[in-house]
Design a protein around this nucleic acid. Structure first.
Lengths: 120, 120, 120, 120
DNA sequence: GTGGTCTAGACCACG
DNA sequence: GTGGTCTAGACCACG
């Protein structure tokens, strides 16, 4: 899986990586149990500091998406806990995006199509 | 229109205000041409620095949501430009949210219902 | 509140600080809404790097114990969410401690007295 | 006695094994003088490195819980020294756990019940 | 070899 | 002035 950093983005690097890995897990590009690159390897590949990647892995770990062990590095968790709900934060963001889309003249149908595309 | 600041949020205050005004315009709570409170009045009401509100208004103006003039203060624009498309940034965010919802076991139907609710 | 670091402990510095702040909140030494020292001030006081303190504050924040904002620094949260349950991790630890105490000939009564003392 | 490793835990494997053996001794599941599996057998059973089990046994021996001899392998000690006190480290941990439980709204009664359950 | 911790130092957005 | 992010570099425990 290829991670791409937008250096002009306001989103911190560690969060950009986090988001891409989460999307990779959701899309199936990263499978349950799959090995992630080592902290050092990913840092080298992206051209950033190991601390930054380490921070990403710790967040993903605390969120229950991955597990780490010193021998094997990081792996996608076999069983990711399913809360069945969208976080309040994400709901707020979603509402903001829908509002902006609506003002821009984007139809509800187009929004639905995007959801379908992203949900897969 | 009542603006509520979440002091626990990571979203900067000026952005929280901006988002709520945009959502107010989208929902129709704020009508085209409607007068917004002065920078000082809004700052006082929320209990924050006037600089922060000022920043919000500048952003809303640059985004084309409001217009300001020295005499009348800030007003919602009569004709907000309709691009008909969702910004790349919002698409990225939407994809992230959909991915996280999907992993959490939220169904596509539930997401669609949220869209409907927020779109109105 | 005075933070004391045991440099010979296996517990990482950021976690030692975290634990002492949590215990301070529990005992009432740190009150709801009370200001914590700034990252820089606490780092200086303890004689460690600001990053280490920053990590502590971020953990406390993610755990819901404190809130941070750029203007006022960090403060103890007014309303800490009460789950009403002990985490599985803490239960395991508690069981380990009780087992070791039991083997060492510590009576159940003595354990209860410690609980009472710490609970307050 | 069955040893279970939690691969998601931050507790090192050798410590997880150590803790479970100590709890086994405390509960009586492992009796005084009882033979422990050989390092190789236990490593094989759990599916880990022999070095890890070896480390566990060394620690248990240094703590006075087991004794080893070349002929018979490892056995639970007949007479484990009873200090009658809880170690300072365990007291600290206990205080941390009680504090966190208290903040979470767990009552003193519930804590006592857990102690009773674990003490047996 | 792996992730985890920590330092010294820097720059940034927010307010 | 505040917390947040990031770097370059180091050392450590675990396995």
């Amino acid at each position: 899986m290829i991670i791409r950093i937008d250096e002009y983005s306001d989103v911190p690097i560690y969060m950009q990586i986090r988001n891409q890995i989460v999307m990779g897990i959701s899309s199936g590009e990263l499978k349950a149990g799959e090995q992630l690159p080592t902290v050092r390897a990913l840092a080298m590949e992206i051209g950033i500091n190991t601390m930054t990647v380490s921070k990403t892995y710790q967040i993903l770990k605390s969120e229950g998406y991955i597990m780490t062990d010193r021998k094997n590095g990081a792996r996608v968790r076999q069983q990711i806990e399913q809360t069945g709900v969208i976080s309040e934060e994400n709901k707020k963001e979603l509402r903001r995006i829908v509002s902006e889309a609506r003002i821009s003249g984007v139809s509800k149908t187009e929004l639905r199509k995007l959801i379908d595309e992203y949900y897969g």
